[in-house]
Design a protein around this nucleic acid. Structure first.
Lengths: 245, 245
DNA sequence: GCTTAATAAATGTCAGACAATTAAAAGTCT
DNA sequence: AGACTTTTAATTGTCTGACATTTATTAAGC
């Protein structure tokens, strides 16, 4: 009855049928799907329609295709790498297209980072610490552009997340952290604010170094409120500009 | 040189080109893409190839299509609803296909839930509390199947996440919580274990009711370790069975 | 002015052809 | 027999052209 529940395309229906089979485990990883011609027969549609369905599934990394004899479409083992990529694309678009407030995204990001701070404090390796310290040094470089500063910030926080040693957590948080980058990029980081951030980053790494979960939590809270202040200033300045213009 | 860097299909290349335009903001929401025929001209390919590219984008909810005169493909505003759906599908598959250990998924899930507990304690409305209490009552019903018990568990935890009042956080966590369900479904909940879980759920809701973030955190910690125990028992039993078989 | 019919633009689907790729099978030479 | 080469068959990738279906606009008729 609603305008959106009209029957979808044949290719969408077929894609959904195969997707269900994969998600419900009726088809297992690396299993070969019937050839396009066979699928066309089975579903009673043309090969073009089947191909469109398969392309939909390929776009979600559910299948991969191989040409040639004994080729075909195979159920794809979804790798963390592929899942990361999709999650980041989706999260970035979700934020940019829905006018998500800076405060909201910032809050979500730091809430999630705090979630992995205790685990990171427990499990961080020397490699994690040195990676984070390398980024902090880079951030102290005066000649760094705002964009590069942001990128380094993301790299540091990514290291924090990875230090928790839980790939599922890393996957889930990658989207939140990376998707924030475009929002962060609109901030102009003054020399003063960079100093402040670098100091807080140092506190954070030192806390992880000494396995002090509480101190790490505090550092992240400080970082959140400071980032929030910076973001608010930018938005306020922008609002003033548009009011006078 | 690696086997994977061979040039992808034309339809994949075209999809990527359009995807870049959308992600980078060169095409804005609700903007109409050229017709399939025009795109075929522009890219110098046939209409079929263009269609396959568009289906890829549609599978990611990046575009929607409308038939008829003045129809065509339009840049789609990615809704939270669509993003949820994709995130859940991806997360579920990632977990089921990569032999993620129960412990890992469980840890990630509760770490993220604890992240929103303080916000939920602050912002929960009476509606959230009553929703959670309704689910707890249902969980105390002896006749409930294991599957329904799990579903109610997910509903309760979903309410907890939503109580944090941050849609971005809700989106990110939906995947983690829902993707756990298949793993949880393998657990047989005895009457004794259900009592225990219901008691912990009550503690959690009471903590939110009194806006006691620390108590909520404690309840979630207890829930995590208890869930972990249940999961480990199941896995141990399964290991015994397969050893004797 | 309102209703209805024609129109045109677009996507959806189909059929058939050929190109490109690739693993297996068959053939050939030493 | 074994190593190398050629052929073959299966399968995906791409193109062309046609027709069906949908739908907003336009025109016609009353």
């Amino acid at each position: 009855m609603t305008p959106s529940d009209r029957k979808p395309d044949l290719s969408a229906q077929i894609a959904q049928a195969i997707r269900d089979a994969i998600v419900e485990g009726r088809m297992i990883v690396d299993e070969r799907l019937p050839s396009e011609a066979e699928l066309a027969d089975q579903f009673g549609v043309s090969r073009s329609t089947v191909r469109e369905a398969l392309k939909r599934l390929a776009a979600q990394s559910l299948i991969r295709t191989q040409r040639g004899a004994f080729g075909g479409a195979f159920v794809n083992r979804l790798s963390y790498q592929e899942a990361y990529g999709q999650h980041i694309t989706t999260s970035t678009l979700l934020l940019s297209m829905n006018d998500v407030r800076f405060e909201t995204a910032c809050e979500a990001r730091y809430a999630m980072e705090r979630a992995c701070a205790p685990l990171a404090a427990e499990r961080r390796t020397p490699r994690h610490l040195s990676m984070m310290r390398t980024e902090i040094e880079r951030q102290a470089t005066a000649s760094l552009s705002d964009e590069d500063f942001c990128a380094s910030d993301v790299a540091l926080h990514r290291a924090l997340v990875d230090a928790a040693g839980n790939p599922v957590l890393s996957y889930q948080l990658a989207g939140a952290v990376e998707a924030m980058q475009p929002l962060m990029n609109m901030i102009t980081f003054t020399a003063r604010s960079r100093e402040e951030i670098v100091a807080l980053h140092k506190k954070l790494v030192d806390a992880l170094d000494t396995r002090d979960a509480a101190a790490a939590d505090t550092a992240l809270h400080s970082l959140e409120s400071y980032t929030l202040t910076l973001g608010r200033d930018v938005l306020a300045a922008r609002a003033r500009r548009s009011a006078t213009a």
